[in-house]
């Protein structure tokens, strides 16, 4: 009885320690986008569960090796236990429940990050088309509506976009659209509003951004560790990625898909401005629009 109580106490202590470490030891970079804290919630949970399982199994293993080590001169065998069905059912159930819980929780996280959200394109409601595309299943949208920005939509009529993470919500429809072109070994950012072309991405804290990304040559990937977001940029299949930056600062944009000899050098920055200085940057760099 005292042994069972001790075991229960040790298990509780292990779980408490695991949760404390998981929620207090930070292994992640700065939080700079609206979905980064959501990501970090998932990370903390997985980190806690991981610590509990790993430390628990390590303790059991090391204890067994010490407690049941063969003494010098001992030629005997251990107990002839070939199995124990109730015990095996228990340790089938434990991982099954843990995994199910993680799966449901991460579905929730994915939804909160915008993974299941339909796209709100600045120029079109891409979402509506997704219902019709069920046969192929892959695309969220096929046609871009021509209303808001005819100069873009006309040239891209019929182009299929593949969804990445969508923006969370954008009630005022003030999303900043940016066209991204990736090539060996650079990113080029083009702002349809103001016709600005830049080697760095400039965005405004609090304003949702939608990237429409195309690759010129091979597969690249757009990754900002501080945003906890990544999306491949695939030749022949333009992709979308939306996010809302929250913390002003300069963060790296890293290519995360092997793209050739200078892959490691394919980096640039995203500058998150506060709204005023972003407006200044826009005004300073605005080019006369090319008429369609």
């Amino acid at each position: 009885m005292r042994r069972a109580a001790g075991l229960a106490l040790a298990t509780i202590a292990l779980i408490a320690t695991g949760i404390w470490i998981g929620f207090n030891v930070n292994l992640l970079p700065v939080v700079a986008s609206a979905n980064a804290p959501v990501y970090d919630d998932l990370f903390k949970l997985l980190f806690s569960i991981g610590i509990i399982l790993f430390v628990g199994i390590t303790i059991v293993l090391v204890y067994s090796l010490f407690k049941f080590r063969r003494r010098v001169g001992d030629q005997g065998d251990g107990l002839a236990i070939e199995g124990n069905l109730p015990l095996e059912i228990v340790w089938t159930a434990i991982p099954a429940v843990v995994v199910l819980f993680i799966g449901i929780y991460s579905y929730d996280i994915y939804e909160r990050m915008g993974g299941m959200t339909s796209f709100h394109d600045h120029s079109a409601m891409l979402a509506g088309a997704s219902d019709n595309a069920s046969g192929i299943g892959a695309e969220l949208a096929s046609n871009i509506e021509v209303k808001a920005h005819p100069e873009i939509a006309n040239t891209e009529q019929g182009k299929r976009y593949w969804a990445g993470i969508a923006s969370m919500d954008d009630p005022d429809n003030k999303t900043l659209p940016v066209d991204v072109t990736a090539m060996q070994f650079a990113f080029i950012f083009h702002y349809p509003e103001g016709n600005i072309t830049s080697g760095e991405l400039h965005v405004s804290a609090g304003q949702p951004v939608q990237l429409r990304m195309e690759a010129r040559d091979v597969i690249h990937a757009f990754w900002v560790p501080q945003f906890r977001l990544k999306q491949d940029i695939i030749p022949g299949q333009p992709t979308l990625l939306s996010f809302t930056p929250t913390k002003p600062g300069t963060y790296p944009i890293v290519c995360a898909e092997l793209c050739g000899p200078y892959h490691g050098g394919m980096r640039t920055n995203v500058v998150v401005h506060d709204p005023d200085s972003f407006q200044t940057w826009l005004d300073q760099n605005r080019q006369p629009a090319i008429s369609a």
Binding site: L46, G103, S106, W223
Partner: peptide
């Protein structure tokens, strides 16, 4: 591995 299997987790650390 179980962590990497979760889409939202993987989107940050994939290819790293």
């Amino acid at each position: 591995g179980v962590a990497l299997a979760q889409v939202p987790f993987d989107i940050h650390v994939h290819d790293t």
